[in-house]
Amino acid sequence: MGITFRKETFRDDYTFRNSPEHIRRFPFPFNEDAYMYAVNIEPHVVGPKGSVLENLIDVDEHYVAEMQDRALVLAEDPLRCQSLPHMTLAGWDLLELLMEQQALGYPEHFTLERDGDRWRWINRPLGIDDTFTFGDTSTLPYGPMEYITRQSQGDFCILDQRDGNLWMDAGMVTTQADWSLDFDIGMNFFEWHAPVPLAHEKGIFTRALKFLTNIQQGKPARRLNWTMTINPRLDTSPENYHKWGPDRATVTPENVGEKVHLRVELQSFWRLPRSNAIVFPIRCYLIKMDELVTQPKWARRLHRVIRDLPEELATYKGLTRYRPTLVEWLSKLDDGSPTSPGFGPD
């Protein structure tokens, strides 16, 4: 049985919804009633059936709609997908990884046939059936990274490893939490994280870099990150901040449940074999407050986390303007009873 892909939008009329099964599989990012940065990296191994970790590259009911939204973003602003000249080989590595993983996890939707360097890729949800020569860019309609990331959920950053650092030298970034690939491309690990408050002082990035530069082939790792977004908008780029920024001033006690979304990024890290680069997929999951609070444990815990979040973090995540309204709304769902350990719903 395959996935039933939803017809929905992430802009204008915002018809995005999660089905009840997708609410329960949402990667809720808080395993306790408070949040602070930590190097929360763990091995990226397959998790329980029915969770977002059932496959290492997750495809869900929003796949087709997200790919349509990506195509709209790229038509408006092609600079969201860039690759410095030395990164083409890494693009091929990524194409191989995503084709293999999607075909492995969802054989009813994707098929990869390999005969030496002659490859055939069938993507049924998007109606694609292409035969090409692996390694020969002229046999694809786009460069290898752009070709496959137009068919894969989540943003992708490819990091070149040199001189003990990681350099953001290629990426497809259309669903980002307020950072600009066009501005950050070419920067090293510390530079592109520069705007993040508190974490540098805690030595978080130094430790994270040491870990990431040692990621080995066949042993990917992952972590979760989160923020909040008003309306189920995937494209919260700085480029369009002046267009979506005003939404933050539209939150009222009446519309919190429909407008405010928790946005969770499942970030994973993989060593690429030919280029020795690291690919960093950033898979974004959205859930509106009305959907989230159908799980009472999550409602209570989110209330406590947002209420007690340090001011610098609230500012960095852009919550300042609507945090009081949100906390007030969530407080009515928090009877003060304890929450069970772990991420999952009760």
Binding site: F183, G186, Y241, H242, G245, P246
Partner: peptide, 18 residues
């Protein structure tokens, strides 16, 4: 926030939300 590739600092709308 500075980009060597662009040789420029980043300017972001200061009153986008209001």
């Amino acid at each position: 926030h500075y980009s060597r590739r662009l040789a420029a600092f980043q300017g972001v709308c200061i009153n986008a939300e209001d």
